[in-house]
Design a protein around this nucleic acid. Structure first.
Lengths: 253, 253
DNA sequence: CCGGGTTAGACCAGACCCGTTCAAATCCGA
DNA sequence: TCGGATTTGAACGGGTCTGGTCTAACCCGG
């Protein structure tokens, strides 16, 4: 049995069972534990496994707490579509906009008209990638450390780049918002960027579906009065009134 | 029996059985193991087999092993792979590197070991995207306008971000290079970034296959003396000597 | 039919790779 | 903290690979 075959078998077993053990594999595959260890470290180097004492587990078992990027776009896609559609009315003609990272701004990015010139500034790798090849669009990406979970630029460079930018309309997403609790997000670094983003547009539009309403996360980075317009989907009458009282105009898509 | 017939037979057998062995094939087909090995490497070059010690297995058997492996073998040429492999030796342990946009640096990005911590600074959206989700890597993207053609960050922000960065090793690509003409690229904006990138690393490594040698494009952004090490594939003896004379150490992968 | 040029494959030796063995260092649960 | 299990590193042996040289077959024009 070749090393490559053995490693494939190990990986298959790890994925099927959720874990593998050095000694079991050794007797199973008829080689010494040392050989298995070498295979495991090769698989670790390839990024397929994470090592543990006496064995290993596949990396996909190690997903963290914040939802993954892919699963998030699937959730609530219908509401986000409607919100993005409503946001289209706010796009300036031949101007500049800022799109934050997040699935709702990403939905808006997909809907941007292809026939009119527009400059888009974004912290999101995926948005930049999706828009970069469109002929009439100028895409500017904000620099910085790329968070693996959200694929957004954060930290030093991001704050500096944002500080030197000024756009017509900024479209922001959020993880949680309420009249009392303001705007919140779970990550400190991302909160700093979001705070800076609140100042980047002459007009600030928050895109947030009803599932974010009332949610409060670790970091508060601003309040609703920093927002000029909130576009959301169906929310209760009294809640809408309360939000309007806190500052922004509220539009329901 | 012709070589082509033999190779067809080897491939058929590999697909049918899932694996082949050099010695078995040799006695089977009545040729020496060396001949079989030559056939196998031809089939590997054609992308049909993956080699193993003492034999080979068809590539179909390996899908799902490394998700990247499919796309890169399809797109990237053999030379770039070899150059990228040779460049791996220059990766500092637990340090910082810069990767420029371009297919050869991208090939290097794919090969980066997943088990050791490393900070990667890049102007390339695609490289940033590919590396951002790897657990042990810190990825920093350079901000700026995104060129649709190359998906690289250029202009103001890029130059500023680059100026404030300092890495252990910078890996650069180029469109053309020669001892006399220096380093050249067709786009003005990209030339400015490349010029800045020449100063970003304490050590500068140029990755360029032989097809770039002697090519001269519109914008000259530096000379070979700005480069510490040039990694390329097969080039003529006298050309290598001339390049070395112009400044950099030359390594052929 | 001949003889130089080309090519495929054989032969060979040294380098290299892989898996094993063994001992020392390290880790972990009791 | 202790003792057994695990890991790490070095050394070894056998098989494999690599590059070079050599031979035989083939191709062609003379």
């Amino acid at each position: 049995m070749y090393a490559a075959e053995r490693q494939r078998e190990i990986l298959a077993q790890a994925r099927a069972l959720g874990r593998v053990e050095v000694n079991a594999l050794a007797t199973d595959l008829g080689v010494t534990p040392e050989t298995i260890r070498r295979d495991l470290s090769a698989l670790v180097r390839a990024g397929a496994l994470q090592r543990a004492h006496g064995g290993a587990i596949p990396v996909e078992r190690l997903v963290g707490f914040e939802p993954e990027i892919r699963s998030r776009t699937a959730v609530l896609s219908d509401e986000k579509q409607r919100i993005a559609h409503a946001a289209l009315a706010e796009i300036p003609e031949n101007g500049t906009i800022f799109l934050e990272s997040g699935s709702t701004p990403a939905a808006l990015a997909e809907l941007l008209p292809a026939d009119q010139p527009l400059t888009v500034v974004t912290t999101s790798l995926t948005i930049a990638l999706a828009l970069a090849t469109r002929p009439r669009l100028t895409v500017l990406i904000i620099g910085g450390r790329v968070r693996g979970r959200t694929l957004a630029a954060v930290d030093d460079w991001a704050l500096r780049d944002l500080a030197s930018a000024q756009v017509d309309v900024a479209f922001l997403g959020t993880n949680g918002f309420s009249a009392a609790g303001g705007l919140t997000t779970p990550d400190v670094a991302e909160a700093a960027v979001k705070r800076a983003a609140l100042g980047v547009g002459r007009r600030t539009v928050l895109l947030a579906d009803h599932s974010k309403l009332g949610v409060s996360c670790l970091c508060r980075y601003g309040s609703l009065s920093d927002v000029d317009l909130l576009i959301t989907d169906e929310i209760a009458e009294d809640e809408a009134a309360e939000l309007t009282g806190a500052g922004p105009q509220v539009r329901q898509a």
